[in-house]
Design a binder for these strands. Structure first.
Length: 278
DNA sequence: TGCCAGGTATAGG
DNA sequence: CCTATACATGGC
């Protein structure tokens, strides 16, 4: 496919790119005019909203030429194209005014299927950090490891093999603080193949969570976020301070998971995005 | 300027 | 199972 060419990808139930980016699941989208530049899968793409979906333009690709079908298939999965989010937003009980308001407000938010290793590292970084501070640290890591997407000023996220070459001290200079050894050890254990993605993908939700939690610096919340955003386990419901606050206020402490199976993770994301309005 | 950030490891009950 | 405390550093 030629550069400059735009591909349309239909996303069932539509997307609001701004709301999705601000919902705190992905940390590397770069605002660019009326859309975002997104680095992933060895590519840099420009994405803009288009009726019922997105227009996608390949800015650069470090991989061998792919045909349009491959590109569409990769990014359709990333944006969870086939799942109809308008249906999911209709799931809340009308009597649940809080969740109804959150899903209404969250129209256009989708769960992005990100690359597992990047997701894990960014959520290890996320503990006790603001979203803007997470973004700063992630970018510093990418710049320090230093592999530009060809012909652009944007760095790709490092592979485990690349990241493990940064010592904990070098990682500390990325503003990681006490997390530096967590990141280093995680990169090492991925680099030796202990966490092969084919193997992880074959695990059920609970086993996946428990496996991720064998990593230092990965507790129940980071493991759940990684499984939800990096392995697309849509039924998992990560509980952070904001979600807990909502549960205490509106649900007597615990969410009615049985009502929203297998999409509890999406409900969680609507609630998180609504956190400023509690 | 001081407080807080999409928590976790650890020690102790 | 539970609770209390330390933790590095950047943003606002």
């Amino acid at each position: 496919m030629k550069s400059g060419e735009k591909l349309f990808i239909e996303l069932k139930g539509g997307i609001d790119l701004g709301k999705t980016e601000k919902s705190g699941q992905c940390f590397r989208w770069i605002p660019d005019g009326d859309g975002y530049l997104i680095p992933a899968f060895g590519m840099l793409v420009k994405v803009t909203e288009s009726k019922g979906g997105i227009d996608l333009e390949i800015i650069s690709s470090s991989k061998k030429k792919k045909d349009a079908d491959d590109i569409v298939s990769i990014w359709s999965r990333y944006f969870d194209a086939a799942l109809d989010y308008s249906k999911i937003r209709r799931m809340p009980d009308k009597k649940d005014g809080f969740l109804s308001a959150a899903t209404e407000s969250g129209e256009g938010i989708r769960i992005i299927y990100q690359e597992p290793f990047e997701t894990l590292i960014t959520f290890i970084i996320s503990q006790r950090k603001s979203i803007s501070a997470i973004k700063t640290s992630v970018e510093r890591i990418c710049e320090t490891v230093g592999r530009k997407i060809p012909g652009t000023a944007v760095y790709d996220f490092p592979t485990p093999g690349e990241l493990k070459n940064l010592s904990p001290d070098e990682l500390s200079e990325c503003g990681l603080g006490y997390r530096a050894p967590y990141i280093h050890e995680t990169a090492e254990r991925f680099a030796i193949g202990e966490f092969d993605s084919g193997y992880l993908n074959g695990l059920d939700d609970e086993t996946l969570i428990n496996t991720l939690m064998t990593l230092k610096g990965v507790g129940v919340k980071v493991a759940n976020c990684t499984a939800l955003f990096g392995f697309h386990r849509l039924d998992l419901f990560p509980i952070d301070v904001w979600i807990q606050r909502a549960l205490d206020t509106y649900y007597d402490g615990s969410f009615p998971l049985e009502k929203y199976h297998p999409y509890n993770g999406i409900m969680q994301q609507y609630i998180f995005a609504y956190r400023g309005k509690l």
